[in-house]
Design a protein around this nucleic acid. Structure first.
Length: 911
RNA sequence: GGGCGGUUAGCUCAGCUGGUUAGAGCGCCUGCCUUACAAGCAGGAAGUCGGGGGUUCGAGUCCCUCACUGCCCACCA
């Protein structure tokens, strides 16, 4: 570790090294406690990426935010545990391997279930979890020793247990209902996995002849092919148009079947023709209707959405081919009454975008209402807090209109449902372990259910299954559950609010309620929740606010961008733009700006190391004992030292506040302004003059100590945001032997508001003075190198600040005066009048324009203030701080206005 | 059909429970290679806070309304 740093910061040179170090040193490993932790515990779960996943910007945002929060908690003395893992991602992973097989000209059926699953495991071993390797590169401070996979033996046992318990509690049932069927994936999918798209479609009107008389009932449909499965036509009982056909039979066109006309108030009279075909096997409403009227459903399609034998002559045709043929045939028979354009919303499979077929199918469901009730209560009672708050509304909205959850999937990759069908009596035995015999008839010929569970079933259990939950009741307790459950925070995107967040809440509240508390007492809903807070982050879009998508080709690869700008810069960019509830328009320019910030920090370190070297040569040795810990300052220290210490303390305090509300952008801005604005632009410039190594004294030594200790604290402040850069410099600062193995294990600087208000006020006036003189010089066209004398009235510069004021404002000499010399180029503020002595004439026109503008602004403000201060309601109702503030400002204005006017007058009459 | 957001400087966005003079980055203009940093330093210009109405002592902030815009949810064929 050298203090001999190159001029420009090169992140690639150091990041890999530290990423590796953090992992190999197991810095963030948090073992299972043997006794309950005596410090605050901060637990969080990484939303498990799919094993098939590649890191995208959304992951990086999520991890940056989680990492900032976790590192911050850890540095503030919490026992911080962040658990990583991956999800087996049923459909997604199965598709990857199927595609691989396809390349070999095979299907999964060709290789068979067992061999296929073996193949998926092989795939997982080779390619899976690449995303976690990418994560390591980002410096995420997770506990790698706890990395899980949702198909691990332990987590699978938890899944089985959870399933069986729900079944025993009567909350899981199996039955034939309309489900969303993806003909390509050949599985049922849940409501959430269907994405609806508005599409321009058609509404066909078809005539169903009345049996035994002339005439028709005309029905309207968007899916004519399903008519082959019609079992009735329904009309509203009060619809006068159809009173005469109640109870009559209709001939179903293209078939030889006859179907009844039924009446049901559900039918809406003003849609289409007011008569609706009833197809219970292919439509959810029709299914309900069919049940009410005891109609036998007829399924006319197979698993691939081709027409089946029940479709007669159309058997074997794809559903859309069949649609076309049926419409043609109807037209030919003059049974097509009309075709209209119709916009309808069409459901597609979330995975493969195939149009979903609502289809009658036997599946497993969770009776969700009892779970949802608890989940609603948990949020209503405030046991779980959402940030931004508005997501609680979305959550309630969904939870209150919830439908039973179809949890079975006709896939091979996943947790196989622990149910066994008896070959003899058809009874289903649900059990934790493979049963020897049918629990009903005792026969031993059993066949395990072939369906697997929805991926989200297992991920919904994670907040407790990762901590060893393998069953309910008192025996469920584990040291990890005692110590780490409930977790504190979940950070995730709104896209999985229902898929995952809502399910975790439902399952957590359900399963953890009967697990006793660490002290053995009964757990209540408050502590059954899987997490206390949910932070929902925004979407990362491209610089033009477009959603990133492969088809648009505007996907920003985080690894690529990290390679170009450095991880710290990208992390900082994401943090600085992560305002809760607002999408992030990720731009490279912005990232470039924060790379510059990293470079700034780097160079500040270089400067500091140079000073330390010069000091050493002059015989001043500063050791870690002098600068580790919180920066301390004595009352007699020079202003800039007292000021910068006050600044860092209040920055730390504000940072704590912002981070506790997940206002990452405010936190990032605070630290940016502190480091660049306060520390570099002002403090370092001043310290250059303070450090006189020519004739070293105790004050030089004291100034140097403050410099180093503030810098050291600033590194700690920055480290949750920029872990690599700060780690590197921190180690260098300690000459390779830091007090902790990592800055991540050091203490976060203690915050304090108003640490030294006096110093801050004094400094502000000096900054104002220097700024005013700089502006004045510029307006007068004085070259930068030329030092000029300055007249100053109504203010005197503190003796020990004189030298830096002169240097920073390029003043050769400060001449205190009672009033400024007539005709001098001057400026006035509330605190002082200042003028520079310089022969060159001011640009009168420009100066006049500036003064007029300023005067107008002042006068307007003054009249507003005056009016307010004369207002009794204002004086009575406004808080005293506001009134006082306005009075002070009015006082300033009453001083500034005459001065500005005088300055304007001194320019002479306008030409 | 229901619900939730957004509209602030040329651009991208902050502005937290209403409170003194609305901020930042980038861009732009001017001047500087001042031995930490040109990925830098100093200075500057630039906003009727989408339109209209209301509440209030006080509104970018709260309410109503209009316009434009984005997202989520949904079993009307």
């Amino acid at each position: 570790m050298s203090r001999d740093l190159p001029t420009a910061y090169d992140p690639t040179a150091i990041e890999d090294r530290w990423a590796e170090y953090w992992v190999s040193e197991e810095l963030f490993h948090q073992p299972s406690p043997t006794t309950l932790p005596q410090v605050p515990v901060f637990t969080t779960l990484l939303p498990p990426p799919n094993v098939t996943g590649r890191l995208h910007m959304g992951h990086m945002l999520n991890q940056t935010e989680m990492d900032i929060i976790t590192r911050w908690h850890r540095m503030r003395g919490s026992l911080a545990l962040w658990v990583p893992g991956t999800d087996h991602a049923g459909i997604a992973t199965q598709m990857m391997v199927e595609r691989q097989l396809e390349a070999e000209g095979k299907t999964r059926q060709d290789v068979g279930r067992e061999a296929f699953i073996e193949r998926v495991w092989q795939w997982k071993k080779h390619y899976g979890g690449a995303i976690l390797e990418q994560m390591k590169r980002l410096g995420t401070s997770v506990d790698w020793s706890r990395e899980y996979f949702t198909m691990d033996a332990g987590l699978s046992a938890a899944v089985r247990e959870a399933f069986v318990r729900l079944y025993e509690q009567g909350l899981i049932y199996r039955g034939a209902y309309i489900v969303n069927w993806c003909p390509r994936c050949q599985t049922a999918i849940s409501d959430l996995e269907v994405v609806h798209e508005e599409q321009q479609g058609k509404l066909w009107e078809i005539r169903y002849p009345i049996v035994g008389e002339s005439g028709y009932v005309t029905v309207a449909t968007t899916r004519p092919e399903t008519m082959l499965g019609d079992v009735a036509v329904a009309v509203h009982p009060d619809d006068e148009r159809y009173l005469n056909v109640h109870g009559k039979m209709l001939r179903l066109p293209l078939t030889d079947r006859e179907i009844p006309v039924i009446t049901d108030p559900w039918v809406s009279r003003d849609f289409g023709t007011g008569a609706v075909k009833v197809t219970p096997a292919h439509d959810a409403n029709d299914f309900a209707l069919g049940q009410r009227h005891h109609l036998q459903p007829i399924n006319v399609m197979d698993d691939t959405a081709h027409m089946n034998a029940a479709a007669g002559p159309y058997a074997g045709l794809d559903r859309f081919v069949a649609r076309k043929r049926i419409v043609e045939d109807l037209d030919e028979q003059r049974l097509l009454a009309g075709v209209r354009d119709h916009v309808n919303s069409i459901g597609k499979c979330d995975r493969c975008k195939t149009i979903v077929e609502p289809r009658l199918s036997t599946q497993w469901f969770i009776k969700i209402q009892p779970l949802a009730d608890k989940a609603i209560a948990a949020v209503e009672e405030g046991y779980i807090r959402f940030t931004p708050e508005q997501y609680a509304k979305t959550y309630f909205e969904w939870m209150r209109n919830i439908h039973d959850w179809c949890i079975s999937r006709q896939l091979w990759w996943g947790h196989r449902i622990p149910a066994w069908h008896c070959r003899h009596c058809r009874h289903i035995t649900v059990a934790r372990e493979t049963p020897e015999a049918c629990e009903k008839c005792g026969h031993s010929e059993l066949e395990q259910e072939t369906d697997v569970l929805d991926t989200w079933f297992s991920s919904g259990l994670l907040p407790f299954s990762v901590f060893g939950w393998r069953g309910g009741g008192p025996s469920a307790r584990t040291p990890d559950l005692d110590a780490f459950y409930p977790t504190q925070l979940l950070v995730t995107g709104f896209d999985i609010l229902f898929f995952w967040v809502a399910r975790m809440i439902m399952l957590g509240c359900h399963f953890m309620l009967d697990v006793p508390m660490p002290d053995g007492s009964q757990r209540t809903l408050k502590d059954a929740v899987p997490f206390r807070e949910v932070y929902i982050h925004a979407l990362v879009r491209d610089a033009d606010r477009q959603k990133m998508s492969k088809t648009k080709g505007n996907v920003i690869d985080p690894i690529e961008i990290v390679r170009r700008f450095g991880t710290d810069a990208v992390r900082f960019t994401l943090a600085a733009m992560a305002s809760p509830g607002t999408d992030i328009a990720f731009s490279e320019e912005r990232t470039g700006g924060y790379r510059a910030f990293a470079n700034k920090i780097w160079n500040a370190a270089r400067f500091l190391f140079m000073q330390l070297d010069r000091a050493a040569k002059a015989g001043i040795v500063v050791t870690p004992a002098d600068f580790s810990g919180e920066p301390e300052i004595t009352a007699d220290a020079p202003l800039e030292s007292r000021w910068i210490v006050s600044r860092i303390k209040s920055t730390a305090a504000q940072l704590d506040e912002e981070l506790s509300e997940y206002r990452f952008h405010e936190a990032a801005n605070l630290i940016y302004q502190f480091f660049w604005g306060d520390f570099c632009d002002w403090y370092l410039e001043i310290i250059k003059l303070r450090l006189d190594f020519g004739s070293p004294s105790e004050s030089t030594r004291a100034a140097l100590t403050t410099l180093v200790s503030v810098f050291e604290a600033a590194l700690r402040l920055l480290s949750p945001f920029m872990p690599f850069l700060t780690e590197e410099i921190w180690h260098a600062l300690y000459g390779g032997v830091p007090p902790e193995k990592s800055i991540a294990l050091a203490k976060f600087p203690a915050g304090e508001m108003h640490a030294d208000d006096l110093a801050e006020i004094d400094m502000r006036v000096l900054q104002e003075l220097i700024g005013t003189v700089r502006t004045l010089r510029k307006d007068l066209g004085i070259e930068e190198k030329v030092a000029v004398p300055m007249q100053l009235s109504r203010y005197s510069i503190p003796a020990d600040c004189l030298s830096f004021v002169r240097r920073l404002a390029r003043i050769s000499e400060v001449i205190p005066v009672d009033s400024l010399t007539e005709g001098a180029s001057s400026r006035s503020t509330f605190n002082f009048d200042v003028a520079v002595v310089y022969e060159r004439k001011i640009d009168v026109a420009a100066e006049r324009e500036r003064l007029v503008k300023e005067l107008t602004r002042f006068e307007k403000e003054a009249s507003n203030a005056e009016r307010q201060l004369a207002n009794h309601s204002f004086l009575a109702k406004a808080p005293s701080t506001v009134v006082e503030g306005l009075r002070r400002r009015a006082g300033e204005l009453s001083m500034l206005i005459p001065k500005t006017r005088a300055a304007l007058d001194s320019l002479g009459p306008q030409k």
